[in-house]
């Protein structure tokens, strides 16, 4: 940018010559950073959730569910696989964005995002897609393990009834929970607070959202209460995508899922403007 003249003085290119900042490269860099971050701790981010999902499949799907048959004639394992896949996607998408922000607050590098030319939309989408990517990777591995168990039990591969609906709910669910992790991490004042939200709010919502049971088996009171759990719609949407049947109308599931995505997106954007980037 600068050159030395024959007299030894320095000529500097006029600031008018400076190129404008590209939009895509900063976004891609943050997305790449999010990916590299979870790949650096692969045992914690991929292997550990995989072991958990495998144990669920083995204990609930194969051992306890071995004797249960669905009205459609499918095994309980077929019912469980889509629920566990979605649980993996939601959990890991949330964990990725929230832990990225929380660890950035702890190390002090979250402030970097304020002094570089990244806009709030770029930050949010990079983090959301980073979380979605991790969620989909763990979800895919859970699905493959589930298929192995299913093949061992049933002698056939569990077919996917509606691949487009499956993709829709996986992406919308993963993005939603990834975005939800952003405000929770921004507004938390310690690691404990983020863990508490995960353990006492999100995990119960996921478990009570129909991963392991059908809504039809619940007492009418709890069935009515469950209608207010947004996770129910994500899980039933994925179940519809795989099995072609679900407890909830697919149109309603899609509508609630999209509404949740928009709500979490707006809340996350707000947190990026008002949240605290400073080091703990």
């Amino acid at each position: 940018m600068s050159s030395r003249t024959s007299e030894g003085s320095v000529e500097v290119a006029s600031v008018r010559d400076l190129p404008s900042v590209p939009r895509f490269a900063p976004f891609m860099t943050l997305y790449e950073r999010e990916m590299k971050r979870f790949m650096k701790v692969i045992f914690q981010t991929i292997v550990s959730p995989l072991i958990t999902a495998t144990l669920y499949l083995l204990i609930f799907g194969v051992s306890l569910g071995g004797t249960i048959r669905l009205p459609s004639g499918d095994s309980y394992l077929a019912f469980l696989i889509p629920g566990l896949v979605m649980m993996s996607v939601l959990n890991n998408a949330f964990q990725n964005s929230s832990s990225s922000i929380v660890s950035g607050k702890f190390s002090g590098d979250l402030e970097d995002l304020r002094v570089v030319p990244l806009g709030k939309h770029q930050i949010l989408w990079a983090m959301s897609i980073g979380g979605l990517t991790r969620g989909l990777i763990v979800g895919l591995i859970t699905y493959v393990v589930g298929q192995i168990f299913y093949f061992a039990l049933e002698g056939a591969v569990l077919p996917i009834a509606h691949p487009l609906w499956l993709g829709f709910f996986l992406v919308v669910g993963g993005l939603s929970f990834s975005k939800l992790g952003v405000p929770i991490a921004f507004w938390s004042r310690s690691f404990d607070q983020v863990s508490a939200v995960g353990a006492f709010i999100l995990l119960p919502l996921i478990y009570l959202g129909g991963v392991f049971f059908s809504l039809e088996n619940l007492h009418p009171f709890w069935k009515a209460i469950s209608q207010f759990n947004p996770v129910l719609y994500f899980i039933n949407g994925v179940r519809y995508g795989v099995l072609g049947t679900s407890d909830v109308d697919i149109g309603l599931s899609a509508g609630v899922s999209l509404a949740a995505l928009i709500l979490f997106h707006l809340v996350a954007l707000r947190s990026l403007v008002t949240g605290n980037y400073q080091r703990w």
């Binding site: 900063p26 860099t29 650096k40 402030e111 002094v115 030319p117």
Partner: peptide, 30 residues
């Protein structure tokens, strides 16, 4: 994009090495 900033406080950057940190920071500026 016109400014470089050296803050007062040291930063840890938990997961990444020196070169990665510089690559990411450069990428944020396009």
């Amino acid at each position: 994009s016109l400014t470089g900033f050296v803050p007062q406080e040291l930063i840890h950057h938990g997961y990444f090495d020196v070169r990665e940190i510089l690559e990411f920071h450069s990428g944020y500026f396009g």
